[in-house]
Amino acid sequence: MLKLVVCIKQVPMVTELPWDEKTGTLRRDLAPGMMNPACKHALEAALQIKEKHSAHLTVITMGPPAAKEVLYEALAMGADSTILICDKILAGSDTYATSWILAQTINKQCDKADLILCGAFTADSETAQVGPQLAERMNLPAVAYAEKIEVNGRTLRVRRIVDNFRETMEMECPALVTVSMENYLPRYVGLGGLQSAFDENQIKVMDTATLGIVAADVQKEGSRTKVRRVFLRKTQKENEFFTGVAVNVVHEFLNKYERKISTVIGKSIEGKERTRGK
């Protein structure tokens, strides 16, 4: 039986969020969480593998208690078991620290995993670093940005497009793959499915102590990068405002900038308005 692990992350629905126009920041307090889209594609890839081969699928996330929501969703989609790593001392971990915790958890809770899947990147950070670093932590062969994975015995065949090259690679299990959003459209789970996943309540919540990790190690493998300062970008230009009905605004604008536009587009729009008369 194949042992599959998928690492998922809950992210705020950034693109749906209103902005606080005064401070220029996202109203994160209003953010409902969702499963990171690329993680959902990775989960779908795992589920499709499970449909063809006998497999056990564990889904892991590190996050706050609210991250249980995405685990319930994963159960509803078809995961067999789930783990939430939740510990205050892990808050603010960078990718170096995150990959370490994930590796520790997989080693301790899913010994001898055959295939670990991650999303290619998260919508809230886009670093795309955790998957490759997790592979290094676990000393596994890895391919990033996969759009198709085939399992033949212990051999994985992975297809991807990177930097304008279409590549097919092979490697042996155990291995790690990060999944892009090109393919593997996630299955839809109705409300009923979600409801029954809630009832089953099969989420293991673990902190570092229950994982058997000592504080000194968390320290040693902790974040390498530090955010020293966050600042508001200066944006105000010496600019010109046109206000009013669209048609008039457009006339005004074109009359003033006809020369500039003509030069750039290599076609003349100059003087046409004036000669035409009003």
Partner: peptide, 24 residues
């Protein structure tokens, strides 16, 4: 922006297309 137009985006787009077609 160097030029900021305070107006409905689609309205400005439609006017610009119409006006440019005429002028060109």
């Amino acid at each position: 922006a160097d030029v900021a137009m305070v107006a409905d985006a689609s309205d400005v787009l439609n006017s610009l297309i119409k006006e440019l077609k005429k002028r060109i």
